[in-house]
Nucleic acid binder design. Structure first.
Lengths: 197, 197
DNA sequence: GAAAAAAAATGAACTAGTTTAAGACTTTTA
DNA sequence: TAAAAGTCTTAAACTAGTTCATTTTTTTTC
């Protein structure tokens, strides 16, 4: 069977953890919705109740909250082969506190809450897939939550650059500051300092 | 069937997400190892390759790393009804960077790597249990990793006190500082300031 | 229950990161 | 392609949090 490029990407992602038969692949793909989104538009805004989780097949999006002073705090950049969304709102049906905005024209595959539940009934192997996906994410978020309180801003910047060299060049310095957790002004100083070496 | 108190605790924890038959319960319990650990002794030290994940049935433990200057950074306090361990080392068999030390005499139930894998074969429902457990943990670690970079130390302290009122009284101010990500001296100042209100 | 060890409080001098403001540079839009 | 909007840089004054040193209080140990 010949698949579209975006479908190949998501099937490869799934195959990192579980094997699917041709029939299961087709069933799985039938539960997904293709979404195109223009640069600068929103996939989600604070207050929304989100009914989808998303897999990025093309582009880049930023996931962030706004604090009381209106300053953005970026929790992740989602690029090709990443999953994103607000799991808390997806699970509890409570309004999200997140904004998700495309920083490039992007293409996603979404799975709705209903289809997510259906998926486990139809192909129980997906419990394993998500168990392993969440386990892996958990390891990196535990790491990140420790680094947020134990590393200096400069150390966090160097870590980000090393870990995601491909993402650094696709985002603005201002957004990077929002991810590292500092002001754009101080981000500018750090970058000047680190590059001077 | 009559169960030991510690077994009731862990079965209740599991039943938050999945239902087990009597036979499955007994099978599950047979895969667990009971561990007793004295205050001030280590469940795990940096460099160990950990082969267990742990459920706490009694007591309190702190999970932490030491930075280059030897300062401790506490990533969680594990009390009754919590799961702990180093998932990264448990999964990859690489040496851990964590220490886990009992702050009270404690009792745990451990599941070995071999039995963890066996569990999924014998009772596939456990894929679902761990999928949901990890999903829930993920939500709170995403939150924590954002708060680490976006809140002040005082705000993080107030959040911790509100979220875990039962834990605050069981740990030292010094350990709390290690969790909040500040020095014990500054922790002391914050507590004096907040309590003065 | 006394001695030792660890934790907590306090203060002064310091550093990492913020705020505000202004000018230069780059990207977007009409 | 010019104007507008947004991003980046620099610098001075400020604040949150650290470091170091000392004293007091609490907990542990024998």
């Amino acid at each position: 069977m010949l698949y579209k490029e975006s479908h190949i990407l998501i099937l490869n992602n799934v195959s990192k953890f579980i094997d699917l038969t041709e029939l299961e692949k087709q069933k799985y793909l039938s539960l997904l919705t293709k979404i195109s989104i223009k640069r600068k538009s929103f996939l989600m805004q604070a207050g929304d109740i989100t009914s989808y989780e998303y897999f990025i097949t093309k582009g880049c999006l930023k996931v962030y909250t706004l604090d009381d002073d209106g300053a953005p705090h970026i929790s992740m950049f989602a690029v090709e082969d990443y999953w994103t969304g607000d799991m808390a709102s997806f699970m509890t049906k409570e309004p999200t506190r997140y904004f998700i905005k495309a920083t490039e024209d992007s293409e996603l595959l979404g799975i709705s809450r209903a289809n997510y539940e259906l998926l486990f009934q139809e192909i129980p192997k997906f419990e394993r897939f998500y168990r392993m996906l969440y386990q892996k994410s958990l390891i990196s978020y535990i790491r990140r939550s420790n680094h947020g309180i134990s590393l200096t801003a400069e150390e966090r910047y160097i870590e980000f650059k090393t870990k995601y060299p491909n993402i650094v060049n696709r985002i603005t310095q201002k957004d990077l500051a929002g991810y590292i957790g500092i002001t754009p002004e101080f981000m500018s100083k750090i970058i000047t300092k680190v590059n001077r070496r």
